[in-house]
Amino acid sequence: MDFYSFLIQLLNGLQYGLLLFLVASGLTLVFGIMGIINLAHGSFYMVGAYLAFSLAALTGNLLTAVLLGVTLSVLLGMLLEWLFYRHLYARDHLYQVLMTYGLILVFEELRSILWGDDVHGVAVPVFLSGSIPLTDNLSYPVYRLAISGICLLLAGGLYWLIRKTRLGMMIRAGAANREMAQALGINIEWLYTVVFALGLTLAAFAGMIAAPVSSVYPNMGGEVIIISFVVVVIGGIGSVWGALLAAILIGMSDTFGKVLLPEYAGMTTYLLMALVLLWRPEGLFRRT
């Protein structure tokens, strides 16, 4: 493999990993703070992709579609938290798994009713549709670089939100000791709604920006939820920074696995998980 092919794979691995991080960060945040195992988190990714498809067709512009889609995702997050998830905080994980699995079925059925079972494409916005030439016959699409850039910005934003803002302090305080946080005047119910909506929106946003490269198809959420759980487990359940590192590791091992060991490509990520868990059974990092 020459340098430029290697560079392309490296960028692809990074882009895939960062996108995974967006999905997994919401999953691990919701687990770390509210203790919810949310199997339906992958469905939020799918909802995002289908929203991007419909809204881009409606507005003729992916950028507007994403802005609208993010707004709708926040509202959907608040609604779902209020209708379903808040009843599960005090429950056993088994109930959470049952209900959120049920939600996957509901989301898939709704998707089938509303959008049908066809595969759809979403156009890359014109100003991001170019490629950067690397050699005479190799080039790299600007849109993929843009995905990585946006994901990095969001990772930074998430760090800032959790580590540096008062809201972040309240979120961490609420995760550590719910009753004490309330006794200091923090509205925990509202905080949980906000965190849930944030987690859902991160996944939906990942679906939206991934739509032009991955296309939009039935059961796309099912694929992403499994790999997201792998990321969360490797990173350390509840740790956002662990999820970032784990997602990039997975992105790289998957991408390079497909290139270097194509016949074992399906195994590389799970092999990585097994090795990390043998070395550190709790994952790479502890809870944020």
Partner: peptide, 15 residues
């Protein structure tokens, strides 16, 4: 009931 995962300063200013 301190928040062990927050720094001393954060424990104070969050309230």
């Amino acid at each position: 009931g301190i928040f062990p995962n927050l720094t001393v300063k954060e424990n104070l200013i969050m309230a």
